[in-house]
Nucleic acid binder design. Structure first.
Lengths: 146, 146
DNA sequence: TATTGTTATACTCTATAACTATA
DNA sequence: TATAGTTATAGAGTATAACAATA
């Protein structure tokens, strides 16, 4: 019977995580809504550091590399970033323009002032949460081989 | 300076939650892949209890009510569930057929045997995690008013 | 008039595959 | 030949709006 209970507990936890994840997305979207940039652009602009290949940005965003082409196009069209080839000329890195830096700061600021995600957890709680999530992420890493 | 750190910590936690949520979805999809039903049907079939209005099922699935029409169609086409009107005849309730019950059991079993989501957390850890997630979910509930 | 479910349609997001240019 | 990015296209998933039946 503990097995059934364990399963139910696991399901409830999974549901909570999924729910929380959706709220985190919504929270971010709300925070940047007034900035007049699509959410994915706002997410991306936080990752642009002038040295990360587009392929790696795709990885960090969790999307296909081909998709980043469109994002980079939009960033360039809006005058927020430029593509420059790296030493390996196949590679292109995104670098923020002046406007881009300004927007990056405003995005960060908006997310912050909109109330940080884990705002009401104290230090110990955040630490505990990070550890627990870490265990679960590590667990699924291993589990994926099966 | 602690503010910047707090923000970074919140962001990291948010990232972990989102990542974990994606893995939970993938985990579920893997678990039911061999059953030859679309993931959304598998998710739905776990919710069908013979008394929940379709509108409420939409809420639990987190999709638009109109979308549930298609899901219900598929469940009926596959002989897994039937629509029956409630006492309020505007309302329709999904009820599992015999096949549907069998599949519901197999879905639950598959998810379980595929390794429960929080498998490697002990009781105390699960309890702690539930509490922390509960705080965050409650927090964003309030926060959404702003 | 308000609500449930339905229908038809349109849209958003994202991956796939074939291509180019470098290496 | 293998890899980074690009292009064009296709598909999944989902919402929207107008509608019918019922309350």
């Amino acid at each position: 019977m503990t097995e059934a209970t364990d399963l139910a507990e696991s399901r409830e936890l999974a549901r909570m995580v999924v729910q929380l994840s959706e709220r985190a997305r919504a929270h971010f979207a709300d925070a940047v809504a007034h900035l007049d940039v699509p959410v994915l652009l706002a997410r991306t602009i936080l990752l642009v550091d002038g040295q990360t290949p587009m392929r790696d940005i795709a990885g960090e965003l969790g999307v296909d590399p081909s998709y980043v082409t469109g994002i980079a196009d939009q960033l360039e069209t809006r005058g927020l970033a430029t593509r420059t080839p790296g030493r390996d000329r196949r590679i292109k890195v995104l670098a923020l323009t002046e406007c881009g830096h300004a927007l990056q700061a405003r995005v960060a600021e908006s997310v912050e002032s909109h109330g940080a995600f884990a705002h009401r957890l104290d230090c110990d709680q955040k630490q505990a949460l990070r550890e627990l999530l870490g265990i679960l992420l590590a667990e699924t890493d291993e589990g994926e081989a099966s």
